[in-house]
């Protein structure tokens, strides 16, 4: 049973990777990156897309499974009795709320910011940058640990469904295709928009989180932390809903850091003087 769950998990992850690739090709065909996908950005985005999927996540999941087998041998499938619906509900909260905190703390605790900065250094939105993260941020990514532990405890099937839905929502929230725009444009759809934009991450709310400016009433990188559910931002007072999209993305002082420094800081450092990723660089540099 556990092998079947692992197989389904890999299959779902594979389908999501192909969906991301397909959407990325559509974005690229429509010129949505506007020549901003330079060689340095391409290397970083491709490394961040491939390394976690092919190496880091499978290896981490395997090690967690081995750890659980040794130290929690009696707990294997201990929660298999939990009905599917309740398992789904419990995992939705456990997984996504944990990721909300993981993400939020990387913004609000100064010493953690540089591990998440790579995700915000892109001056464009889209599939190319959706997986873009420092490898240490990816290694400690809460979802890998929560899902692996839940599969071991017997909640594999609902965990895979949650993972699939979450992957789809977060991928579409990063897309440069504003699928939510019609919801704001047509008056008849406004009630649906009101519910959707408060429940899940949309391009409008998540793009605002990636905005380069914060003083235009649209950009809001100090909030909108939700991944699958935006509801956490509404509950915790970190939400800003404007139904508009920022003009520019990224962080104004993030320029020129080598792709390998962004991927592997603090092991590798940037050669850009004054950069947060340079040797002796500031922990948090104020936006210029």
């Amino acid at each position: 049973m556990t092998s079947l769950i692992h197989f389904l998990n890999l299959l779902t992850a594979g389908q999501l990777a192909f969906f991301t690739l397909g959407l990325g090709i559509i974005e690229f065909s429509f010129g949505l990156y506007e020549h901003r996908w330079t060689k340095n950005e391409r290397y970083l985005d491709l490394a961040c897309f491939l390394l976690p999927r092919l190496v880091l996540r499978p290896a981490t999941a395997y090690l967690i499974f081995q750890f659980m087998s040794v130290f929690f041998a009696a707990s294997r499938n201990a929660f298999q009795w939990v009905p599917f619906f309740w398992g789904f509900f419990i995992i939705c909260v456990a997984d996504d709320l944990t990721q909300y905190w993981y993400h939020r703390l990387h913004h609000e605790i100064p010493c953690l910011w540089r591990f998440h900065r790579t995700h915000h250094s892109a001056s464009y939105m889209g599939m190319a940058m959706a997986s873009r993260q420092n490898l240490i941020y990816t290694f400690f990514f809460s979802q890998t640990y929560v899902i692996s532990a839940l599969v071991y405890l017997g909640l594999g099937a609902p965990a895979i469904l949650v993972g699939s839905i979450k992957g789809l929502i977060t991928t579409l929230a990063h897309s440069s295709i504003p699928w939510d725009k019609p919801l704001y444009k047509y008056r008849a759809l406004h009630p649906i928009a009101w519910v959707v934009e408060r429940l899940i991450s949309t391009p409008a709310t998540h793009h605002a989180h990636h905005a380069a400016a914060t003083d235009d009433g649209i950009g809001y990188y100090k909030g909108n932390f939700g991944n699958m559910f935006y509801l956490w931002d509404v509950i915790f007072g970190t939400a800003l809903i404007t139904r508009q999209y920022p003009e520019t993305y990224g962080v104004s002082h993030c320029g020129g850091d080598e792709w390998y420094a962004q991927l592997l800081w603090p092991i590798l450092k940037s050669s850009v003087t004054g950069s947060e990723l340079a040797a002796g660089g500031p922990m948090v540099r104020e936006d210029s």
Binding site: F89, I90, A94, L97, I235
Partner: peptide
């Protein structure tokens, strides 16, 4: 202060689906 306040509320939210079940 906001982190501490929200973290306490989160504990209740984590427990909510289990309690409802």
């Amino acid at each position: 202060r906001r982190i501490i306040r929200n973290a306490i509320l989160s504990l209740f939210i984590y427990a909510l689906p289990v309690l409802l079940m």
